[in-house]
Design a protein around this nucleic acid. Sequence first.
DNA 1: CATACTGCATGAGTGACATAATACAGCGAG
DNA 2: CTCGCTGTATTATGTCACTCATGCAGTATG
Lengths: 115, 115
Amino acid sequence: MNDEGKPVYLRLREIISASILDGEYQDGAILPSVRAFAAQQGANPLTVAKAYQSFQDDGLVIVRRGIGMFVADGATHRLRNMERTRFLQQTWPAIAEHMRRIGITLQDLPTDRND
Amino acid sequence: MNDEGKPVYLRLREIISASILDGEYQDGAILPSVRAFAAQQGANPLTVAKAYQSFQDDGLVIVRRGIGMFVADGATHRLRNMERTRFLQQTWPAIAEHMRRIGITLQDLPTDRND
DNA sequence: CATACTGCATGAGTGACATAATACAGCGAG
DNA sequence: CTCGCTGTATTATGTCACTCATGCAGTATG
């Protein structure tokens, strides 16, 4: 969550993930080319490729060699489900435990009208 | 929050922090020696020292060379305040943003009777 | 002083990460 | 086919955080 100290390729992965979840790249959309995204982010093309790689491994993006990388069909939905599961099973329990220790309850949190 | 991949000295730091917040080591209490804690955690004494170091920098533990490290006066209270501020200003905003993206609201979270 | 415990300073080893320079492979347009 | 785009494999290099082994310094106890 805090991008401090995290390796670049993971930071890039989260940027892409957020873009997909926000609907910037919908199912079937073409993603920025490795070189283009590298230039835009001031990173090395190989580092970007490493970030894209993780999405391929999960089957979330389809590679059409010579053309580009595309968001797989149903990837947005699947990505959101994956992130949800990970959050509820791993992230949140640790957060809740930490909150208990420092004496913060859900009521203490800024609620942005979640209804 | 997730101890996966984090450096050992940060993991150790959180263990100590949790112990203090849980009241296991109260103000004025002596902490386990570097070597003892290292043996207990299966880590290197210097790695433990590095973890302790961060507490010294914040003035939360007092070092009496040749004797040991002690929880500073008012450290428990101060540590809790520090963690609270850090959580509310840094941790939580990122969490909330992530929750918004994956479509999880406070109502979806397991509530351990927070009323 | 001798011993046994403390913390700490110095330096080295290791591995992950990021970068670079090249070259290769697939596809489409001219 | 040729040109220009795409992703990818290879190799090499540099950097930095983490970890650790060794030895030194301070303190209590006898």
